[in-house]
């Protein structure tokens, strides 16, 4: 096969993966809505096929370009989606047996791919000599891996905040529906929960709620979401740190300074700082829960700016996008 054929195969596989992820997303949301196991099985199969095609696209791209296919935003995005879906399937579904979050993860992957196609597509081209370093492989691998993990963590943080709101409403509704005490009797002690009550992982709120219809939002309990989000961010943060350090070493070799407040550098530092803040907040009394989660949300915005905005709008040394 010629390099042009490999390039075409890569693009076709990319599109196939995109459609597979869309199908997997629809099936996952259908599972969430209708709670039919067959939907989940189908979503997992289609998602895995999408993952395989996504991987094929990356490999074919590498052969077409004759180098590691991590040289521009389009290629980073293909790798990022691959790692997002991989991390989801392996960690969330396989390790933690949480099956209802696929739709959101696939949506995130689809967003990443759509951005890649619409804004960053370039053919399999040669690289500038400055990118021709093994530090590129290490730095990019670390940054993209960390981005996928932090991204999923932030996604789950959003779901956590949604779920906390739902749980609060459920608790409030339960209270409202409790019949008024008769002749000086008191409200059931179990229902008398403080407004900032966050249930533990082993006590999913709502399961004891008789007023809830059978078809409710099937998100895992907020504590599970919170723990998952934390695990992903905790996993991604040292890798992000490692990636930034590798980037600095590479910059020292190429540009003669390990740090120069280039926009991409600056934003990777900002993202690092915010997630460092998040991890500290979780260990600080009075900052746990929604407050820490909102820091993670700021971190998510910063992550997206680091990944996208710097290349799209801010000029700097990392302008490999165009």
């Amino acid at each position: 096969m010629s390099t042009a054929d490999w390039g075409r195969l890569s693009s076709d596989a990319f599109n196939a993966a995109l459609f597979a992820y869309i199908a997997a997303m629809v099936l996952s949301f259908a599972y969430l809505a209708f709670r039919r196991t067959s939907f989940h099985t189908a979503a997992t199969v289609v998602g895995t096929v999408g993952l395989a095609t996504n991987g094929l696209s990356i490999v074919a791209r590498g052969i077409a370009a004759g180098r590691t296919p991590w040289g521009n935003m389009y290629e980073y995005s293909a790798l990022l989606t691959f790692l997002i879906v991989l991390a989801y399937l392996v960690i969330v579904e396989w390790r933690y047996h949480v099956t209802t979050l696929g739709g959101f993860v696939y949506a995130f992957a689809i967003f990443t791919m759509a951005m890649a196609v619409s804004f960053f597509y370039v053919g399999p081209t040669d690289l500038l000599p400055a990118l021709n370093s093994y530090w590129r492989q290490i730095h990019v691998t670390a940054m993209i891996t960390a981005s996928s993990l932090l991204g999923i963590g932030c996604l789950f943080t959003i779901l956590y905040l949604v779920k906390v709101a739902v749980e609060r409403r459920q608790i409030a509704a339960l209270r409202g529906e409790t019949p008024p005490p008769i002749l000086g009797g008191s409200v059931d002690a179990d229902l008398d929960v403080p407004p900032d009550y966050v249930p533990g992982a082993d006590e999913p709120v709502g399961s004891a709620a008789p007023a809830e219809p059978a078809r409710r939002i099937g998100l895992p309990p907020s504590a599970t979401l919170d723990r998952l989000a934390y695990r992903f961010i905790q996993f991604g943060f040292p890798i992000w740190t490692f990636g930034v350090i590798c980037g600095a070493i590479w910059a020292q070799q190429t540009w003669g300074r390990y740090w120069g407040w280039d926009p991409k550098e600056t934003w990777s530092f900002i993202t690092w700082t915010i997630f460092a803040g998040y991890l500290h907040a979780r260990a600080t009394a009075g900052w746990k829960g929604a407050k820490a989660a909102s820091i993670a949300l700021v971190g998510f915005v910063s992550l997206l700016i680091t990944y996208y905005a710097v290349n799209l709008w801010i000029a700097g040394l990392h302008t490999y996008a165009k």
């Binding site: 926009p263 600056t266 900002i270 700082t273 910063s302 710097v310 801010i314």
Partner: peptide, 8 residues
């Protein structure tokens, strides 16, 4: 972080 953001 905010200061660095202004700088970028």
């Amino acid at each position: 972080a905010a200061g660095a953001a202004v700088g970028s």
